[in-house]
Amino acid sequence: MSLVLSRLGNTVKRLTSFSKLCKSKRVFASNEKSKVPQKPTWSHVEENKLTEETLIDNETIDHLERMSLVDFNNQAGIDRLNKAIRFADQLQLVNTTGVEPMDTVLENRSLYLRSDEVTDGNCQNDILQNATKVIEDYFVAPPGNIPLPDQERDYGPASAKKRK
């Protein structure tokens, strides 16, 4: 009798632990059946799949600084751009034959037309209030149309390796 009871007890224990096991594994089991993929479905693009790497040369550096009127400041700045270009090179892997470029998600909408009424202006104060320099209600700028002088740039090791 005690043997039967103890065996029953063990079975109960095993059943309990089995059900506990089932419970704990339930998440695992449901994960496996889950609609959510349990492993990453893509991996980062390998370097060798991309086109030839572009490293910007001094001429481009100069050109960009003049176009942007901001400077790279240091080698880190140039490296940052090189990396950004490399990252963007992944776009070449996408087949876009026959695809129209998208300017805006509103490309199928129409431009709103405003009536020809004077509703603005006559707010000289508002316009001038944030200007650091004002002379007799005019904004003030230095003489224009003088391009930036050529600069000696010390950006560390030469970045020119390949010409684009």
Binding site: D120, G121, Q124, I127, F139
Partner: peptide, 8 residues
């Protein structure tokens, strides 16, 4: 008048 016919 200067800068008076200027919107934001």
């Amino acid at each position: 008048p200067v800068n008076n016919q200027v919107g934001l």
